[in-house]
Lab assay of single mutants.
Amino acid sequence: STVKVRLGHLEVTLHNVSEEDVRELRELWKNGADEEDLRRWLEEWKK
């Protein structure tokens, strides 16, 4: 499914993403990950 995730002022649209992935991303964000960390996660996730 396609999910729009809003993290601060960063809005990311993920395609074919699982609930688990979204949860993981939100956890990262809650734990103080900055945009760099999130971008890195997204790069990994896209592979």
Rank of each mutant, 00 (worst) to 15 (best):
E20Y: 09
R6I: 15
V3N: 01
E44H: 10
L42K: 01
A33S: 06
G32S: 06
N16L: 04
K30E: 13
K30G: 07
N31W: 05
K30R: 12
W45D: 01
K4M: 08
K47G: 12
R39S: 07
W41R: 02
E19I: 10
E20W: 08
V3W: 03
L14T: 00
V5T: 01
D34E: 11
E20V: 09
T13M: 06
D21T: 08
V22R: 06
V12K: 01
R23P: 01
E35Q: 08
V12W: 10
L7D: 02
R26Y: 14
E11C: 08
E24G: 09
H9R: 12
E36V: 10
L38Q: 01
D34I: 09
S1I: 15
E19V: 10
E35V: 12
V17E: 00
S18C: 02
L38S: 01
E44K: 13
S1K: 13
E19L: 10
G32W: 03
N16A: 04
L7R: 02
L42E: 01
L10P: 00
E44L: 08
V3S: 01
A33L: 06
R39M: 13
R40I: 10
K46G: 12
R6H: 15
N16C: 04
V12S: 01
E36W: 05
V3L: 07
L25I: 08
A33R: 04
W41Y: 03
D21R: 04
N31K: 11
E35D: 09
R23L: 12
L10N: 06
G8Y: 03
K4F: 06
L7C: 06
R23F: 10
W41N: 00
S18T: 11
W41Q: 01
R39K: 12
R39T: 08
A33P: 07
L28M: 12
T13S: 04
H9G: 12
D37C: 05
E20K: 15
K4P: 03
E11V: 14
H15S: 06
E35Y: 11
G8M: 02
T2N: 04
R23H: 11
N16T: 02
E36N: 13
V5C: 03
L42G: 00
V3A: 02
N31A: 09
E27D: 11
V22C: 06
R39C: 05
R6E: 09
W29Y: 14
A33F: 07
T2C: 08
W41G: 00
N31P: 03
T13L: 06
H15G: 03
L10V: 12
H15Y: 14
T2M: 07
L25H: 00
K30I: 11
A33W: 07
L25S: 00
T2K: 04
E24M: 11
L7P: 01
E36I: 10
G32C: 03
E19F: 08
L14A: 01
K30L: 13
E35R: 05
L42P: 00
K46Y: 15
V5I: 15
H9C: 12
S1D: 05
R39A: 10
K30Y: 11
V22H: 07
V5F: 15
T13W: 08
E27M: 09
S18D: 07
N16I: 02
K4Y: 06
E11L: 12
V3K: 02
H15N: 07
E19D: 15
D37F: 07
L42I: 15
E20C: 07
